[in-house]
Design a protein around this nucleic acid. Structure first.
Lengths: 130, 130
DNA sequence: CTGAATCCTAAAGGATACTG
DNA sequence: CAGTATCCTTTAGGATTCAG
């Protein structure tokens, strides 16, 4: 195992290597957004624009506050999401995509389009939801 | 090929819903290829064509045989990868993408392109991000 | 060479309750 | 509102060994 590949993004540098000494953009991208909820969160921020915490939780649907909080923190560390406190009393926070995060749009939309084209909505094909 | 119906039965249990009753293609796509090694494996199969097990393990680099085996099995169950035994003595197996798997090319390439553009190879620059 | 079988640890994800 | 704090279960991933 090449130990340079070991979660070095936490150290700040993103070193993901593949065969030989070749650096792999797919692996690296995957390590950034390859968490369960990351693509969805980014998708919602792309479509809905800046959102508050609960607003986002509703939009993602099914995610617990703890996981959403953890995910957002992770995305923030990766400079993909920006967190802004816009009011102290009551506390009000706004999450938005950074330019870096917004640049992921083609990736997220590629996933969306592929899903639409190749993964039929079960409610529209044959098997209705139980 | 009219495998849409058949495939939706295979993935029919894959009910990923988002806000309200809305089905979410991003979430669903993410649940298919959102594993650590899946995008890389698919990428290698796209670029190298049908490959043997060790060939693939070398191409992915850093993956253990167990994880590669598990990943391939998972991809097979999802009808993205095809496994073919092409020789019995000695055992020789060939993994390739199904049509369904190959259709993911735009997604994988979007990830690759984004990585190339927004995540510089650390060996070539010190500031991959803004 | 093809992997499968074990065993193990760390991390992710989730349920629930609570707080300023 | 926007989270924390616990506690818990599940899963991913890896090391090693074994076998056809």
């Amino acid at each position: 195992m090449n130990d340079r590949t070991q979660r070095s993004e936490e150290i700040g540098e993103l070193e993901v290597w593949c065969a030989g000494e070749e650096w792999c953009p797919v692996t690296t991208t995957s390590s950034l957004i390859g968490k369960k909820w990351h693509p969805v969160i980014i998708h919602r921020l792309l479509d809905h624009g800046p959102s508050g915490f609960n607003e986002l939780q509703t939009a993602v649907d099914g995610i617990s506050s703890k996981v959403l909080s953890d995910s957002l923190e992770d995305l923030e560390e990766k400079s993909l999401v920006d967190r802004e406190v816009i009011s102290d009393k009551p506390v009000r926070v706004r999450y938005s995509l950074t330019d870096h995060g917004r640049s992921l749009q083609p990736v997220i939309y590629a996933m969306r389009d592929w899903g639409l084209e190749h993964l039929a909505d079960p409610s529209e094909t044959d098997s209705p939801r139980e």
